[in-house]
Design a protein around this nucleic acid. Structure first.
Lengths: 145, 145
DNA sequence: TTAAAGGTTAGAGCGCACTCTAAGTCAAGC
DNA sequence: GCTTGACTTAGAGTGCGCTCTAACCTTTAA
């Protein structure tokens, strides 16, 4: 009934490597996984859901330390203490929003530069089609390009 | 006339450490900086602009390897080859946009969880104000929280 | 029955981007 | 003259997040 997954299957499903899955378990991001009689890990559907959520945290840049804290909260108070967990997620949320903002701000400068290069290319092309009146080298102003 | 800056001043202005500034020069992200008679670095306004732009690339997550390539292009063809440079920036731009998209997607799941916790807290508060009819523990369904 | 495929562990190694250290030079102020 | 403090270098060390290795065990299919 419970579809018990092998470490390979979980790796496939989550995009994490089997190495990483074992590593996460070792550093308590994942609670000890059930074993088959032979000692091999058998992941439950719940385990998979948890790992998938961990992965969201990871992909939004949460450091392992923080994920460890969060995991510890979930493990120690699975049925209460939502407030503290929510706080953690909300403060992480703010950090991610700030990061997105910073990416966008800095990207704007890069966009501006791309635009600048486009214009230089157009001007350069024009000066190649029509015989150059002025020396095209005068286009560049300093080496800050 | 040219305001020659010390490494300290550039560090202040850019937010990079003096260590990092020397490190960037060592690995050719920054062309060799002019020196005072005593051998101390003296940064020009142009140097500063370049470092500030580098910093934008860095803050948008461009790896040092790529910045090295870009810097090499600028150094080898300061007055031409805009096309290649523009290509690099555009492909980086796409990568950053994809990254922002991924952050937003994953953040949506985290937001959903925050919402979920909020609701649990409200329900929990209610059940504390009015005498509990059902055991509040029944709120949690599994440990995938 | 035997080979291949997949699992286990403890622990070492890696790539990145810094960050720091040690030993020395130099300029300014007391 | 001497101390203080900012600078120089080459090279070592750090923290993060994996990633791999070696030696061994189990399951499966031919």
């Amino acid at each position: 009934m419970e579809p018990e997954l092998t470490i390979q299957q979980v790796a496939q499903a989550t995009g994490l490597s089997v190495h990483t899955l074992r590593y996460y378990e070792r550093c308590d991001l994942i609670a000890p996984i059930g074993r088959s009689t032979s000692g091999h890990r058998r992941y439950s559907a719940n385990d998979l859901r948890w790992i998938e959520f961990l992965n969201k945290l990871r992909l939004t840049g949460m450091p392992i330390r923080q994920m460890q804290q969060y995991a510890e909260l979930v493990r120690s108070q699975p049925d209460s203490g939502f407030h503290r967990r929510r706080q953690m997620l909300e403060s992480h949320r703010e950090a991610v929003l700030a990061q997105i903002q910073q990416l966008q701000d800095n990207l704007a400068v890069i966009d501006w530069k791309i635009q600048h290069y486009s214009e230089l290319e157009v001007t350069l092309n024009d000066s190649l089609k029509t015989p150059p009146q002025t020396h095209w080298r005068s286009l560049s102003k300093g080496e800050s390009a």
